[in-house]
Design a protein around this nucleic acid. Structure first.
Lengths: 151, 151
DNA sequence: AGGAAACCGTTAGCTTGGTTACATGTTTTG
DNA sequence: CAAAACATGTAACCAAGCTAACGGTTTCCT
């Protein structure tokens, strides 16, 4: 405890300021329901898009949610025609999930709206501020790498 | 459209990279249930802490949720002893919300856990990366200012 | 081979949190 | 002072979370 390095102290200070900002921005990004799908459903569509053929169990593990909950979510998405279930050939217990054409279209729409929202706010910063944000993008992305033992 | 400035182009590029990072980090921060309260409930506790005496209606507007939903959320928090309702003296239609001692304790615990999680990851960056993140904290916070027509 | 064990997905029953519609009591106002 | 506007809460319903239990597959071990 008494051996905290300067790096650790800086990290704690940055974390304390960054926490509310991260939560607030994510909240705004996820606020609106776009194209009839909820933010939760969008998250699921993204996961499926980047891992076509993924199973219900894998998805549940990614989202840290029970397989039962995931099964229900997938069922609703399937009912709405955004996702398709296909039984695995090799292991007939598993079902592979993929986006339908409709699901892909919906996802493109959501991402474009969210990016536009964020870009409009970034564009209102001073050039120096925007540059500072740009320089932080990569380090911030690295914070998540430890978590992503999945894709 | 053909008049996009360099600033706008930079903003769009930064937004596209920043979006998934912001969403992912917030997701990790909000993932765990700490001290028996859900992330949603924590958000509510934070709002009440920074605006003691706030009414149900104001809170519902902040969270962009119906007053009915907010009333239920407050009821559960009250039932769990984290929040107290007190009728306004001047307008007896309104109830003022405040955190109980227990609510404040819970909130401190959650924030300390979240900050520690974030700090441990920030501490694993190189000093240069950490500095870049530190320099971006203020600009990022400014992105939310436009939204906060509330406190 | 054949039965036990492990595994994947779904369903069932309960809780939280969202919605709209309506009820209740309180100002405000014409 | 009656009527409109307002703040909150209740009712009935839907989405989404959990645990537990079940049905069908695969694996593994004699």
């Amino acid at each position: 405890m008494s051996q905290a390095t300067k790096q650790q102290i800086d990290a704690m200070a940055a974390a304390d300021q960054l926490r509310p900002t991260l939560l607030g921005l994510a909240r705004e990004l996820r606020r609106e329901r776009i194209g009839g799908v909820s933010p939760h459903q969008v998250t699921l569509l993204v996961s499926i898009k980047y891992a076509p053929g993924v199973t219900v169990g894998e998805l549940a593990a990614d989202e840290r949610v029970s397989t039962a909950a995931m099964s229900k979510r997938v069922s609703r998405l399937e009912r709405d025609g955004l996702v398709a279930r296909t039984q695995s050939e090799t292991d007939r217990r598993c079902v592979g999930l993929t986006l339908t054409e409709d699901g892909q279209r919906t996802l493109r729409r959501v991402r474009s709206r969210r990016t536009a929202w964020l870009a409009s706010r970034l564009g209102a910063l001073t050039p120096a501020e925007l540059a500072a944000v740009g320089a932080a993008v990569e380090p911030l992305a690295r914070l998540l790498e430890a978590e992503e033992r999945r894709a």
